[in-house]
């Protein structure tokens, strides 16, 4: 554990709490992509298969995994049931098969061992890299977003961004490199570039999140 990974994980936790706070206080999931949230459930379920296989990393690791699975399922429940009427499926139209199929094929090709758990792990890494697309697509379509929704996306982007110095640190301190995670992670972080540009120049200056026409 190093400070980059710890703060990265904390940003990830924060993103979930921001999202829950947004939905609970506004009693609405307007502007939130059910598809992105469903993809995160798929990511956690396929990546954390080791929870059920007895691979023990640490108490922290297990606790966080259980939290990510539980909270992501709860968010799906909120969108699908509790605040169902505030969800607009006509805005959330990104075709998830364009993300699922290529991620699965990449998982079959690039993995550390051709076993179910390792292929699923790789699949989850590739899928997580692109799972934000339906959410960014809603942002693109509506051209604007509530500040709190942008804080949620920013926290996710910070989490991914901090994993990069974490890998650099681990390379020097442990000599370890995880090429699959690193390549997918760099791509994933890159996807937030445009978003962060608008976030820093507008939202953090107190203006509305509005995409240039």
């Amino acid at each position: 554990m190093n400070i980059f990974r710890l703060f990265g994980d904390l940003a990830h936790l924060a993103s979930i709490f921001i999202l829950l706070h947004k939905v609970q206080t506004s009693r609405s999931c307007r502007g939130i992509s059910f598809k992105t949230q469903a993809l995160y459930v798929a990511v956690f379920m396929t990546r954390y298969l080791d929870l059920f296989l007895g691979t023990w990393v640490s108490f922290y690791n297990t606790l966080m995994k259980l939290f990510f699975i539980g909270s992501s399922c709860y968010i799906l429940y909120l969108i699908r049931f509790q605040f169902r009427t505030t969800y607009d499926p006509n805005l959330d139209t990104f075709r998830v098969e364009y993300l699922l199929v290529p991620s699965f094929i990449l998982g079959l090709i690039f993995n550390y061992e051709f076993t179910l758990t390792e292929v699923m792990w790789s699949f989850s890494i590739f899928l997580e890299a692109v799972a934000i697309f339906p959410q960014l697509f809603i942002l693109q379509r509506t051209g604007e977003a509530e500040a709190i929704t942008t804080h949620y996306i920013a926290a996710l982007g910070i989490y991914r961004g901090l994993y990069i110095p974490n890998w650099i640190y681990r390379y020097y301190s442990e000599g370890s490199v995880d090429p699959i995670a690193v390549v997918a992670g760099i791509v994933q972080t890159g996807l937030y570039a445009d978003f962060f540009y608008v976030y820093f120049t507008k939202v953090l200056q107190g203006q509305r999140f509005e995409l240039p026409a």
Partner: peptide, 10 residues
């Protein structure tokens, strides 16, 4: 056989 890295990150 190639060593599978321990997936200790989240």
């Amino acid at each position: 056989k190639e060593q599978v890295p321990l997936h200790d990150e989240l």
